[in-house]
């Protein structure tokens, strides 16, 4: 396959992943639905993955890709446990609003 990287500067990938990361952060702050917040966290994880893969490709080093693989493993575990938590919280308060989980304070 032809090497596409020659025509795309690496900085663009940096820019793209930063933007994606900030969208994720903003989403976490904006939304009240816990499920969407969890998705935004996934978005942030993916922006980091993209960055790792791009560095790995440009530096010709497969370590980065192995790391992305592990990030995916952790993300899968995290989502499974996170969603299970959301389900069990929903059973108790009948809501997925983050403001309904405010009991832990002074």
């Amino acid at each position: 396959m032809e090497n596409a990287l020659v025509s795309v500067p690496h900085n663009w990938y940096l820019l793209l992943s930063s933007l994606l990361f900030c969208i994720g952060v903003m989403g976490v702050l904006f939304r009240r639905n816990v499920i969407v917040i969890l998705m935004c966290i996934e978005l942030m994880l993916n922006s980091v993955n993209l960055l790792l893969v791009s560095f790995s490709a440009y530096a010709q080093n497969a370590d980065g890709q192995v790391f992305v693989f592990f990030v995916m493993v952790v993300a899968a575990a995290e989502v499974a446990v996170g969603l299970a938590l959301i389900v069990s919280i929903y059973r108790n308060v009948a809501s997925t609003d983050i403001d309904s989980m405010k009991k832990l304070k002074w």
Partner: peptide
């Protein structure tokens, strides 16, 4: 300082960012 612990996750996240 404990008054800052509002319990609101969004607030914590905002502070973190």
């Amino acid at each position: 300082l404990r008054l800052m612990q509002t319990g609101s996750t969004t607030f914590y996240l905002l502070a973190m960012v």
